[in-house]
């Protein structure tokens, strides 16, 4: 059944009401300017966050916020699978965690993340018992290939590459399949950013083009071959030069600035990709925008609190904090 934009009327209105509770840029400025970790926590507590009482570990607070956000998003969607492209990468992360945990004799459940499309218990069972047939189609082949890479080649790095590439390709295919342009643009942007990162890191570590092409995800807006050859031949400058001919010309400038600036640009671009579409009265875009804003808020809170715990200056924190448009 085709979903109409008006089928999101309930969800969009619910999201609008919840947008009032989001942390704004002003709130992040206050958090950055906070004297210490405890002061920052107090600001978050005033904004309704479930801050930890004694512990300096704020991971559970962020996990709870992420869980609550996802539950809200699910309540707002007529069909939850519409957003699969946003959470499919978590399945691949869980697969990676399961393989590493099994080979390190660790408990996989401690490393799984939420939300997910495939139950992590199923992934753990498949990897532990080598019963990959029980996995859904999007994970099965990747799991076999990554598992073999560890067992036969003895390369955990190769397994990571296989899983990361499959994760991006699967998310992009799922986004295209959803028929929503905003989700497709977002997945395409994620692939492009990942490929640029691969080219940049490979150039810094002297990797060859074959390696780069093996790692890079399918991407319509970046020519992987030209990007890989630019990285191998001329390093950072050549990458920036090639990117001038793509929609990511700004990425080249950020790369020239620093890796931190580039990482921030990637995250800000993800937020920016939804742009004014989030103001629409109907359709999934406002819900996508809300979800992305919440993820960016979690990232910012993590950066700020970690920095406060380690006595990092406000100026340094400001360079890393992502833009928030509420």
């Amino acid at each position: 059944m085709k979903i109409k934009d008006t089928d999101y009327a309930f969800g969009v209105a619910k999201i609008r009401a919840n947008e009032l509770n989001l942390l704004t840029q002003v709130d992040f400025d206050s958090l950055i300017a906070a004297n210490d970790y405890k002061s920052a926590l107090r600001i978050l507590e005033d904004k309704g966050w479930a801050v930890p009482e004694k512990s300096t570990s704020f991971a559970s607070m962020l996990e709870k916020f992420e869980d609550d956000t996802w539950q809200l998003v699910c309540a707002c969607l007529p069909v939850v699978s519409t957003f699969d492209s946003l959470i499919l990468p978590n399945d691949f992360y869980n697969l990676k965690a399961a393989i590493k945990a099994v080979f390190s004799d660790l408990e996989p459940n401690d490393y799984f993340i939420r939300p997910f499309v495939t139950d992590p218990a199923l992934i753990a069972e498949a990897v532990t018992n080598k019963k990959f047939d029980i996995l859904p189609k999007h994970l099965k082949d990747t799991a076999v290939e990554a598992y073999d890479a560890v067992v036969r080649v003895g390369s955990g790095r190769l397994a990571d590459i296989i899983i990361d590439k499959a994760s991006l390709n699967t998310a992009l295919a799922s986004a295209k399949n959803s028929g929503n342009q905003a989700l497709t643009d977002l997945a395409e942007l994620s692939c492009a950013c990942a490929n640029i990162k691969i080219a940049f890191r490979s150039a810094e570590t002297g990797r060859d083009t074959e390696f780069m092409l093996r790692c890079m995800a399918d991407c319509d807006t970046v020519d992987n071959k030209r990007l890989a050859f630019a990285a191998a031949d001329g390093g950072r400058e050549a990458i920036a030069e090639y990117l001038q001919f793509t929609p990511y010309s700004e990425a080249g400038e950020k790369l020239a600035e620093s890796a931190v600036a580039f990482e921030k640009w990637c995250d800000d671009s993800v937020m920016g990709s939804i742009g004014s579409k989030r103001l629409a009265a109907f359709g999934p875009e406002p819900i996508i925008g809300y979800y992305l804003t919440c993820l960016a808020a979690v990232k910012n809170v993590r950066i700020i609190l970690s920095a406060k715990l380690n006595g990092v200056s406000s100026e340094e924190i400001r360079k890393r904090v992502r833009n928030i448009n509420v």
Binding site: T6, A13, A17, N18
Partner: peptide, 17 residues
């Protein structure tokens, strides 16, 4: 019906509206 759906979304979060 359409406005009702949207209204229910808001009231579910803030009944005072």
């Amino acid at each position: 019906g359409l406005v009702g759906e949207a209204a229910a979304g808001v009231v579910s979060e803030d009944p005072s509206k």
